[in-house]
Amino acid sequence: MSGLNWTLWTVAALLLFWGIGAYNRLMRLRNGINAAFVQLDEHLSARAALCSKLLVLLEPLLSNEKATFDALEQAEAEVRASAQATRPRPYVAEPVGALGVASAVHAAALTRLMSMLEHHAELREHADLYALVDELKMVERRRTFSRQLFNQAVWLFNEAITQFPTRILASLYGFREARSL
């Protein structure tokens, strides 16, 4: 073999190993999005359970606030459906976008419920109610933190697929930009 052949084989091998390394890096970053979503999904499930308990407790006490309860139940159902659609592939933009919208609607309904609780002084004597509210606030803080971790994982992945020359390989491998919440 001539020197030119060795050079071509060396360049081809380097390109092959670089391509494999770039693919593995993108897969590692995409798996980071999956791992971050699993943590976020746990907090979404915990929030759903606490909201359900809270509504069961409040409905007999405030029967005239049915519209508020229905709005929260509907928003919770939308979040559950969106999270279910996002679970298999949290790096796909469409279901994550739907989850973001559903989460915003849920946050508005939950804020309305919390505001309503503050205006009903007669509820202050129910210690178990406020224990649930405190637990819900704690889960919300954890959910917010896990959402930040998810968004950071998405940002790292998106930055990696836009860098040259990985950008070329990302399109060849079928990697698309992920969406944050």
Rank of each mutant, 00 (worst) to 15 (best):
S45I: 04
L44N: 12
L61T: 12
K53I: 00
Q39G: 02
Y23L: 02
A48K: 13
E59D: 05
L26E: 01
R30D: 04
K53S: 13
G32S: 11
A22K: 01
L15W: 09
V56I: 08
R47S: 12
L44A: 11
L26S: 00
A49W: 05
L16I: 10
R47W: 10
I33N: 11
D41P: 09
L44G: 12
L15V: 11
M27H: 03
R30S: 14
R25V: 08
I33M: 09
A35L: 08
E59G: 07
W18D: 09
L44E: 07
F37P: 03
G21Y: 10
F37W: 15
Y23N: 01
M27R: 07
R25Q: 05
L50H: 14
R30W: 04
R30K: 15
R25F: 03
A46I: 09
R28M: 13
D41L: 05
G19W: 09
E59K: 15
G21R: 04
Y23G: 00
N64V: 10
W18L: 14
L58C: 01
E59V: 02
F37Y: 12
G32K: 11
A35F: 07
N24G: 00
N31P: 03
L54K: 01
L61K: 14
E65V: 02
N64G: 12
K66V: 12
N31T: 15
L16M: 15
L57C: 02
L15D: 06
L61I: 05
A36M: 07
L57G: 00
L16Q: 10
L54N: 02
G19D: 06
E42S: 15
L44W: 08
A35T: 13
V38I: 12
A22C: 07
F37Q: 06
Q39M: 07
I33W: 11
N64K: 11
R28H: 08
I20L: 13
L50A: 05
S45M: 13
L62R: 15
N34G: 15
S45P: 04
L55I: 10
N31R: 06
L54S: 06
Q39H: 06
L57I: 00
L26A: 08
N64E: 15
W18F: 14
F17D: 07
Q39D: 14
C51A: 11
L15Q: 09
A49G: 14
N24S: 00
V38K: 12
A46K: 15
K66P: 08
L26Y: 01
V38N: 12
L26V: 00
S52D: 13
Q39C: 02
Y23A: 02
L44H: 11
A35N: 14
I33Y: 09
A22T: 10
E65F: 04
E65N: 02
S45D: 11
R28S: 06
L57V: 01
V56T: 13
N64I: 03
I33C: 10
L40H: 10
N34T: 15
